[in-house]
């Protein structure tokens, strides 16, 4: 039999157990669009040595390289969304969230000193359904790459890449054309 809580047995745990935020701890804001990740500013300027006062902090080159690679992928995706939206206006509404989120991703990645995406080209297939499928496929590939890159980093950069990968998984799943029911 399933246990049903009542007013007497339910205890307030949010303040006692940090992990209980899963149920009652934080603001849920799904509609906020660009959102503010928990990595706020944390990727910027990690000093590599306690240099003299006034020295410009530097970021680990491996972190810059990983975030720059991610930024290039995001740029490619952004161009793909833009091109597909221009070519197939009927897809604009469906592509709006992804296009907006990738702008946020790029902005967040560029907060880290030295991160510079490379120029990217994108070719859009001839039909709208093929374009959707191509974007979904590229989102998934980017998610796999970013998740793998996140595993090789640590701290805030790892979290940022993992969150971007998670967004790309969601976008890929949402944009993947649904298979017709065989039944």
């Amino acid at each position: 039999m399933r246990y049903t809580p009542n007013r007497r047995t339910v205890v307030v745990t949010a303040a006692l157990v940090p992990g209980a935020v899963a149920l009652a701890g934080c603001k849920d804001d799904a509609a906020s669009g660009a959102g503010t990740p928990g990595t706020n500013g944390a990727v910027n300027g990690t000093p590599t040595s306690p240099g003299p006062t006034g020295e410009t902090p530097t970021v680990d080159p491996a972190v810059v390289a990983a975030l720059s690679t991610a930024a290039t992928q995001v740029t490619q995706l952004s161009q793909l969304y833009a091109t597909a939206s221009r070519k197939f206006p009927a897809l604009r509404a469906q592509l709006a969230a992804g296009a907006k989120y990738h702008v946020s991703h790029l902005a967040k990645l560029r907060e880290t000193q030295g991160v510079a995406p490379q120029a990217a080209k994108s070719a859009v297939p001839a039909s709208s359904q093929a374009a959707l499928a191509a974007i979904a496929k590229q989102e998934k590939a980017a998610a796999v790459a970013n998740a793998a890159a996140a595993a090789k980093l640590s701290g805030a950069p790892a979290r940022l890449l993992a969150e971007i990968a998670a967004a790309e998984i969601q976008l890929s799943t949402t944009l993947t054309p649904k298979k017709k029911d065989a039944s």
Partner: peptide
């Protein structure tokens, strides 16, 4: 696990988020 829960959110009617796993 984060990626798994990001996918699960869609199963439960959620829309994609810009940064799943971020602290709001």
């Amino acid at each position: 696990t984060l990626l798994g829960y990001a996918t699960s959110q869609l199963t439960w009617g959620g829309a994609p988020l810009p940064f799943p796993g971020a602290t709001a």
